[in-house]
């Protein structure tokens, strides 16, 4: 059976006609050939993209006003960015070892990504601390406020991801799972991590160049 017809093709069907009915009776009731969870992750990523895009629009609008004073980027942010890139890379490796059903590597890999993600979050908090000790408060300039806002939102997204990472990891460690479901969960987490890396690179680039 053919899946994933184009939207215009679907919309031009005439469901009342006998010839179309024969085709439609073969339909198994699924629009896309992917799992519900994967579609769910994609939907969440879409919604997050809209949220971050709107913040970026607000940022672009607000920076044109006279009181905007750019903020310095501490070198630690570069380290954090590197940690996040490594995090994404290791998640990819976990996914590969999960696909190969390599239990030992999955376990080490899951620990590594969790460690890196928390390192990143702690790193971001240290950046906050450094900036605040240099008197860059959210109230002192709107550029600072945007920095704190962006890092908070991105961090919250990462914490959300860590919740699901925790679920997969505990399921895996208990050994009480179906292999396919853990593989799938790890794959979805990896996709989400890559997405968060992408978001961070966009936000960091935006703040770097303005």
């Amino acid at each position: 059976m053919k899946k994933e017809e184009g939207i215009f093709k679907i919309l031009s069907q005439k469901p009342w006609e006998a010839s179309q009915a024969v085709i439609d009776n073969n339909h198994d009731g699924k629009t896309f050939g992917i799992s519900k969870a994967k579609l769910g992750v994609r939907t969440i990523m879409t919604v997050s993209t809209v949220i971050f895009s709107l913040f970026i629009v607000a940022y672009a609008d607000r920076m044109l006003i006279h009181d905007w004073r750019s903020m310095p980027e501490p070198w630690l942010l570069w380290v954090n960015t590197a940690v996040l890139i490594m995090n994404s890379y290791f998640f990819h490796k976990v996914k590969v070892s999960a696909d190969q059903n390599n239990n030992k590597e999955i376990r080490i890999g899951l620990y590594t990504v969790g460690f890196l993600a928390y390192t990143f979050l702690i790193g971001q908090l240290i950046v906050w601390y450094q900036l605040m000790s240099l008197d860059y408060f959210a109230t002192s300039n709107i550029a600072n406020a945007f920095f704190y806002l962006f890092t908070t939102l991105h961090g919250l997204h990462l914490l959300g991801g860590l919740y699901f990472w925790g679920k997969v990891t505990s399921k895996f460690l208990k050994g009480d799972y179906k292999l396919s479901s853990v593989q799938h969960a790890i794959e979805l987490c990896a996709i989400y991590w890559h997405f968060l890396l992408f978001v961070w690179l966009v936000l960091f680039g935006l703040m770097l160049f303005t």
């Binding site: 069907q13 339909h27 198994d28 009731g29 699924k30 629009t31 519900k36 579609l39 769910g40 969440i44």
Partner: peptide
């Protein structure tokens, strides 16, 4: 709402009965 909305669209897209095309 986002949690609910996720459910509504994914249910409609992915868990329909046999023979239930979108246009039906």
């Amino acid at each position: 709402f986002t949690m609910g909305g996720l459910n509504y669209i994914i249910t409609m897209l992915q868990s329909r009965a046999r023979g239930m095309t979108l246009m039906r």
